[in-house]
Computed example of a mutant assay.
Amino acid sequence: MSRKMGVRLTMHHMAAGGGGWISLPAELLKEVSDRLRADTDQIHIRQVCAHWRASTAPLAALRPWVVAAHDRHRDPFSAVNPVGEHSLWLPRGGSDPRMDPRPPAPAGLPYCCGTPCGWLALTDHLRSPTRLILWEPLSKAEIPLPTLTTVAQVFLSGDPLASPGCRWMAIASQKIPGAQIGQRLFFWRPVDAGWVMQLEYPNGRIEGAAFHNGRFYVSTINMSLDIFDLQHHPPNRLRRICLYAPLQARYPRYPGNPIPHAVACNNQMLLVIVYRGPRQAVILAEVHRPDWDADRLDLREHKVSDLGDYSLFLGRGDTLALSANEFPAIRRNCVYFVEHDTYKHEQWVVVFDLGSNDLERIPHPQEHLEGGGKSTGWLAYSWFCPRRPFLGKQAL
């Protein structure tokens, strides 16, 4: 029997009333905890009881994971399709698909359409789907969504298991047939019979999406940003912002090719501009806190250089703001960016320090292996972070 299986059996024994295990020596519990490699096992061992939590080291290894996709499933003529074969990887290596810590996904759902709020959006077929679900890897909970053809991404306004009643909304982007990066937006609430289409982006792949104070912010690769009021149904688009003019006011000549990302952080709505230089490599990231209700955004007076204990994580559509207090393994006041463009992939993870302006390029976890790196076919796609209930004080 493996060590991990032994720990899991012990925890099941505790849950069944085997009170004798509560008196295990603290040094033995710490030794067992130190031997566990998976973050999920570290979480589980600390959830057994107060004694086990006090006797084991803090979750220094807890971190968001990179969702990687295998490029043999990608469509070379589209930049908005969901990923097929996918797996979770640690940003700095030490893991490969065979060491994936999550339990197997439900059978027959090979396509991943996003990682919203600690869930994986999975579907069985792109053009003729019969199932589209939200799946939570730790609890294995499933929530069905209405099917939608050629769905590319799914976003959630809140955690379905934590939101009271039906006060959450799913938003899906659908690939426009025949368009390379064109997408449509659809909205759905648990009380609705099906998806309601709201808007088309014929030339704009979605780069960042975030929710804040009842509004939905979506930024695209063609430098537009739309703000929707979710209090109406279907949601009402309040305004569309063209970001070229605010950027030109800040920079007569851009330092690189700008890509916008909307991110909600610490009860604030932020705009992150990632600049690409030669060979489309990331060279700079800037964070702004604009006045979203102003007639015209001013990015010259609202630059943010200190996020406190927070760092921002940017992927394909999904964006996260995480605190270094809850995730001791991450660096504070940084922008973490995964290279999710299906045509580039010169990088794995880029970390930009907002305080020092230093930029660190984290290589592919297999870069040090012969024949490793991106040649293995595994390409960074987005970020995944476990649901908040697993990261609260009871787990930490």
Rank of each mutant, 00 (worst) to 15 (best):
H261A: 05
A262T: 15
V263E: 03
V263M: 03
V263C: 06
V263K: 09
A264C: 04
A264R: 06
C265Q: 04
C265A: 15
C265G: 00
N266W: 08
N266T: 06
N267G: 02
N267M: 10
N267A: 11
Q268S: 14
M269P: 01
M269H: 09
M269A: 06
V272P: 02
V272E: 02
V272H: 06
V272S: 07
I273E: 02
I273C: 01
V274L: 14
V274Q: 09
Y275H: 13
Y275W: 13
G277T: 05
G277E: 10
P278A: 14
P278T: 03
R279H: 12
R279P: 00
R279Q: 15
Q280F: 10
Q280W: 00
A281V: 05
A281Q: 09
I283C: 14
L284K: 04
L284I: 01
L284E: 11
L284G: 10
L284R: 03
A285C: 14
A285T: 02
A285R: 08
E286T: 09
E286K: 12
E286H: 13
V287T: 03
V287L: 05
H288A: 13
H288T: 03
R289I: 00
D291N: 13
W292R: 05
W292K: 06
A294K: 01
A294Q: 06
A294I: 00
D295K: 10
L297G: 05
L297T: 01
D298Q: 00
L299N: 09
L299K: 11
E301H: 00
H302G: 04
H302M: 10
H302V: 11
H302D: 03
H302N: 14
V304S: 04
V304G: 01
V304W: 06
V304Y: 03
S305Q: 02
D306V: 06
D306N: 15
L307G: 08
L307K: 12
L307V: 08
G308L: 07
G308Y: 15
G308M: 09
D309V: 15
D309G: 12
D309H: 14
Y310S: 11
Y310G: 01
S311M: 02
S311N: 06
L312R: 04
L312I: 11
L312Y: 13
L312M: 05
L314S: 05
L314I: 09
L314V: 10
R316W: 07
R316Q: 11
G317A: 03
G317F: 03
D318I: 11
D318G: 12
T319H: 15
T319I: 07
L320D: 03
L322Q: 10
L322C: 07
S323V: 10
S323F: 08
A324Y: 04
A324R: 15
A324F: 01
A324N: 08
N325G: 05
E326S: 13
E326M: 07
F327W: 09
F327Y: 15
P328S: 10
P328E: 11
A329D: 04
A329M: 10
I330P: 04
I330V: 15
R332F: 13
R332L: 13
N333G: 14
N333A: 15
V335H: 15
V335E: 12
Y336S: 06
F337N: 08
F337C: 12
V338T: 04
E339C: 06
H340R: 04
H340A: 12
H340K: 03
